[in-house]
Amino acid sequence: MSKPIVATTSLAGCFGCHMSLLDIDERILKLVELVEFNKSPVNDIKTFTKQCDVGIIEGGCCNSENIHVLKDFRKNCKILISLGECAIMGGLPAMRNNNAPVSECLEEAYLNCPSVQANDERIIPNDDELPMILDKVYPCHEIVKIDYFLPGCAPRADLIWEALVALIEGREMDLPYEVVKFD
């Protein structure tokens, strides 16, 4: 049997979940034996070159590009995993959801913030090349179907490892209490 193919991406995240994936230490050598990586920032493959078995999503959806990438992952991966609080519930980017409309956030960031110094023309970036900011930050499972969820900020390396190996071996996860945390 050929190796399962894994793809990963970071949407509205901080790459902390990917750092945590690397935090499996020397087990990463075993991981390379167990799986093959396709599109992922880890190996810098930018586009899908084949159908993948597992897609790991870090971060929620805060702009149109995130939605595009997430739908692309759903199309190209048999199983999708939401990795970390941002993918699961929007996380820290979603703190804008409950208090400020997106226009207010942009004005604060580009016009009114005390640290804004070089924007004399008072422009909020609006180039066509830029992805549109969504009205709020969405958890991934509100955009596409997500099969598994691994909470944490970042998810503990042991949780990611156990989840991946259990998935590949087709068994239930055996999770010690310490590895499932929301922070």
Binding site: I88, M89, G90, N97, N98, P139, E142, F149, P151, V180
Partner: peptide
């Protein structure tokens, strides 16, 4: 072992 709430977030 709540991995994700089964309900939609309200963001009130």
């Amino acid at each position: 072992l709540m991995m994700v709430p089964r309900f939609s977030f309200l963001f009130q």
